[in-house]
Structures are given as C-alpha cells and as structure tokens.
C-alpha cells in the first residue's frame, strides 16, 4: 500500500513535469517551425513595406535596441544606488525590508499601468508625444526590481572578509565600495540587467501608448514626437489581422527574432547565474 502510493505519487509528479516540459517545448517548436522560414538577411535589413506584408523589420529591431539601451542606462545607476543603500548603508533590518518591499511592489505593478502612467506623465503632461525616451524610462523602471535584487543577492554573497580586509587597510567606506564591493558584484549587475532586458525587449504594454508606432518611424532625432518602431508592437498589430498569409509569415518571423533576442539574453546570463546560485548554496 505504501509502495503503491509512493510509485503513484512519483509518477504523477513526473507526468506533471513531462506535461509542463512538453507544452513549453511544443510552443517553442511551433514558433520556430512557423517563423524560421521567414527569417533571412533581407528580413533583418529591410524596411517594413505594404503594412507588414512585405519587406523586413530593420527599424523594428533598431527601435527595440534603442529602447533596451535606454532602459539599461536608466536602471543601472538606480539599481546600484538602491542596492548599496540596502546592503551597505542601511543597518536597520526594518528599513532594509522596506526597500525590498518597495522593489516587490514595483515588480508587481502590471506593465500596462507603466504605459498608462507614462502616457499621462510624458506624452501628455510633459508634452513629449510618443518618444523613445519615455519608453526607455518606463522599461528601465519596470526592470529595476529584477536588476536590483540580482545585485543585492550578489553583494550579500560576498564574503565578509573582503570588506573587513579593505577596512583593515584603512580604506574609507567610499573607497571600499569602489575598489572592492562594486567590482566584485559586477556579475550581479550584469546578470540582473540581462534578465531585465530580456523582459523589457518583449514588453508591449508599457510602450504602446508612449513610445512606439506601427510604421513610418526611422531613427529618432530628438525627444519630442520621436517614436520608434519595435518588435513586440509589430507582432501585436500584425497578430490582429494575421489571416493574410504573407502577413502571417512575417509575424512569425518577427516572433522568432524577438524570441532569439530574449532567449539569447537569458542564455548569456545563465552561466553567471548558476555560479552565483552555487556560491549562495555553499556559502
């Protein structure tokens, strides 16, 4: 009886794992199967034509990259500042927990609300219209918790001896941070940023009201009224009238490119993350 229950339970768990794995593998296979034929050098380097039915996604790719770089530039300094405040300057456990709560709450805000907030603040109140900058700022704030928490965990896993050795050499707090803590925890910042950017690259909701349009934009030449094209918004619009076969091929191709971008970023982050995981386990 006990044995039967043991085997039944393990089988059930294995079936669940197989089901999850299977569904997700199927999804990946479906996207690749549909999309890969559409991806070509021309597809990546040409402009959009015929409302998405022809041409390529060059400026969508460029636009998404612009948004990602902006998000990175916005989130990195903030993440470093918050992580240092949390891990180094603050001694009170309660305040540390407040900061963590702030990050969790920010992380929980649905991405659509970032978009609406940005629409009110940047598009209307500041009068920027649709602008790459507001999209970048919103995406940067959106990924801030991911980046910061990765950095905080990395700093927490640093051996205490490092900071003590530095203090023993007579370094000031600021010198310790610059010469010991930041270089040692750079890995956390890189990992967190890669994971955050992987998320930012695929987000549609924060940028659809604030930064991106479907067609007719090239490189931005200022802040006001300078939208960009983007990969996820391209998919979002085309998906709604994807019954035209030529559009269908293009939209799947775009999905493959976006997926490659996203998975590429997480894969680059992977070795670093595993190492940090190991250190956290053993330390």
């Amino acid at each position: 009886m006990r044995k039967a229950r043991n085997i039944a339970f393990q089988t059930l768990a294995a079936l669940c794992a197989a089901a999850s794995f299977g569904v997700l593998a199927l999804i990946l296979a479906a996207i690749l199967f549909r999309g890969l034929p559409a991806v070509s050098w021309r597809f990546l380097t040409e402009q959009i034509r015929l409302v998405g039915a022809d041409g390529g996604i060059f400026f969508n790719l460029v636009g998404t990259l612009i948004l990602m770089v902006t998000a990175l530039l916005v989130s990195s300094p903030l993440a470093i500042g918050i992580a240092l405040t949390h891990s180094i300057y603050l001694q009170s456990a309660i305040l540390r927990r407040r900061i963590l709560l702030l990050l969790y709450l920010l992380n929980g805000v649905p991405s659509l609300l970032f978009g609406i907030f940005g629409f009110i603040l940047f598009v209307k109140y500041l009068g920027w219209g649709k602008s790459w900058l507001s999209g970048g700022i919103l995406l940067g704030m959106m990924i801030l918790p991911t980046v910061t928490i990765a950095l905080v965990e990395r700093i927490a896993s640093l051996p205490r001896a490092y900071t003590e050795a530095a203090a023993g050499l007579g370094l000031t707090a600021a010198q310790t941070i610059w010469s010991v803590i930041l270089p040692q925890s750079l890995g956390g910042l890189v990992t967190g940023s890669l994971l955050g950017l992987a998320r930012a690259a695929g987000e549609t909701a924060p940028i659809m009201f604030t930064a991106t349009i479907f067609a007719g934009a090239h490189l931005p030449d200022g802040i006001k009224e300078s939208p960009v094209l983007s990969l996820p918004y391209h998919i979002f619009i085309l998906a709604q009238d994807s019954f035209d076969p030529s559009v269908g091929a293009k939209v799947w191709g775009t999905a493959v490119v976006l997926l490659a971008l996203v998975c590429g970023l997480s894969l680059i982050a992977l070795p670093l993350r595993l190492r940090i995981h190991e250190e956290a386990r053993n330390g």
Binding site: G202, T204, V251, L259
Partner: peptide
C-alpha cells in the same frame, strides 16, 4: 521569458 505578445500570437 517568452514575451506575452508571442503567447498572444500563439
């Protein structure tokens, strides 16, 4: 990490 728009497409 698959973007939600890709899920939407599927």
């Amino acid at each position: 990490g698959i973007p939600s728009v890709v899920y939407g497409l599927l």
